[in-house]
Design a protein around this nucleic acid. Sequence first.
DNA 1: TTCTAATATCGAAGCGTTTCGAGGTCATAC
DNA 2: GTATGACCTCGAAACGCTTCGATATTAGAA
Lengths: 352, 352
Amino acid sequence: MKKRPTIKDVARKAGLALSTVSLVINNSGYVSAEARKKVLQAIEELGYHPSRAARGLASRTSGNIGFILSEDHFSLAEPFYTKIFLGTEFEARKHNYYILMTTVGTRFREPTDVPRFLLEHNVDGVIIAGRVNEKLVAYVDRLGLPLALVDFAVPKKHYSSVQIDNRKGACLAVEHLLSLGHRAIGFVGGDISHPSIAERFDAFKDCLVDHAIPLKPDLIVADMPGTAVQDGAEGMKVLLDRGSRPTALFAANDAIAIGCMQLARQRGVRIPEDLSLVGFDDIETSAHLEPPLTTIRVLKEELGAAAVRTLVEAVKAKSATTMTVHVPVELVVRGSTCQLAAASPGARASTG
Amino acid sequence: MKKRPTIKDVARKAGLALSTVSLVINNSGYVSAEARKKVLQAIEELGYHPSRAARGLASRTSGNIGFILSEDHFSLAEPFYTKIFLGTEFEARKHNYYILMTTVGTRFREPTDVPRFLLEHNVDGVIIAGRVNEKLVAYVDRLGLPLALVDFAVPKKHYSSVQIDNRKGACLAVEHLLSLGHRAIGFVGGDISHPSIAERFDAFKDCLVDHAIPLKPDLIVADMPGTAVQDGAEGMKVLLDRGSRPTALFAANDAIAIGCMQLARQRGVRIPEDLSLVGFDDIETSAHLEPPLTTIRVLKEELGAAAVRTLVEAVKAKSATTMTVHVPVELVVRGSTCQLAAASPGARASTG
DNA sequence: TTCTAATATCGAAGCGTTTCGAGGTCATAC
DNA sequence: GTATGACCTCGAAACGCTTCGATATTAGAA
């Protein structure tokens, strides 16, 4: 409980000016080897460590990075963004930053909806994960704070961002299905206004075309309002009611895939025998489904870590250069996909 | 990018002294209704918000709570403490605090192993989750910082803490097994030096005695070094090699239970037919095992939230009163336990 | 030798708050 | 009529740093 030493005490003990001590601590300016040694020793003996608040006030830096998440994403049911957040925590510690986390609603009005750490000037940079109100993004930008978006982009604007390699993922999925002999490959997506979903859809189409497979519009459903389980079920229903019979399906994400699975079961469509199914994201539950879902794994922690690295660079550089990082994805083959040959009707009945 | 207003600007605009403005902001001292109104209006018009750094320096508060976690617990494989952490984030936002997170190793030497936020005086209180070096706890205590331990306790010392209701949980487990007709109930634990594990073991014994079931030492294994899956397998092995044949088993946590399951499968012991098994914690995977594990659910996020509440109280009160909060647990019945009747040898063979 | 630039140290002016004590007004109690 | 205390406002002194400009010294270039 005794008073902790200040830079003044160090200066006195070292017999040097306070400002010289500061130079040593910050490794800036000119300091003789001798003076440096004296300062270091005094620091050591006193057990001195600079105060963050004082340093922050004088240098107008906080040592913190703000992490903004949309409210509906920071639920315990949504481990996707939660993992991104944990990824930022991991990486921030490596760079001697702390993460201040907050969530925001879809509305954005000043100053009520401005994250407190922005009002208090308590962060040196901001990470925004997932879709948030564009006005919030603009607000952060106007503050002149380094900014990195994760799995989100604002149309017509260039911000630094960390993106999932959606195109690659979609290709991996399609090529996996092709390699299994599938040709009638469908797509179930929703909320095409979400950049990631749109990109997956786009790449899906491109990839088929690249492999000389003609697109069949009746195998595609992409107009559900959201990207949750019920949207997947809804999409699957539309597809089946339409009379379409794809042998394989690429779902825009795992939640949608799960919805497809549920409806398939209701309608007596067997997975993978009658229909191979590939998801995207590799969320926790996917591995535990029956059958376990073949999917595209997204390295969620890596998304967060990359965002921190981007930001730390930006803070150091003080330049407004923006950059986009694409985090790799990988195919995880599980039980929801199989060779087309085995998918002919009755194949199972004859063996069972 | 234009300079943000300071308290000085507010004072000028309101035609009052800077200190009066401060009093209004902090709702302290005497301020006339008229003056308050003028200040509030000036603040509104200028869009003023106090700077955290300046306020921190002057008032020696940071608005942050430090969260210390043992290194091996902050892995992505260990969602238990990670969830506690998320629980603190949730709750901290409600009280206008931010969480600064760090991990520590088992060693503790000053000043190398001291969390940076402590050196920088950058937190108003500290939460320590899980077992850490006792010297670290003593160090925090010596700093005079409010402290709350989560799922950890230091022998012979009284710190505020948030505990799992281990006794209740163990009783729920035992009584569940008793209600299924089991009498030969075994225990597999490890690392009895961990307070939580010890308490579960203790309550297990007490509960049996309370129900007039004599303790059979040969049904108990509790000397493994750790509490992980392999320790569970090891314990199960010892039990079986010893020739003990409990009809039901209470494992000190889910990881241990999983180890038991694995070894049981190897040895041809069927769960639940030959052996009913109850775990503790309700970790993510437990629900997805085959069979899904009956266990005692621990509200992990609530542990974290309770710790924050405890700490916020302590910061406000400035008193050194300590308190222990017990967070409730609940029994989750799944497929790894069943009625004793069905467990007679051959019961399955005759139906299969 | 003289000038310049690099090196080294220092004092002082902030950074934007909180807090303390001084000083003033006014109503109430004695 | 004066003392007392509540109420109100203010200026100034911290809080513990960074940073700027001044000054001094030294080494190398001209």
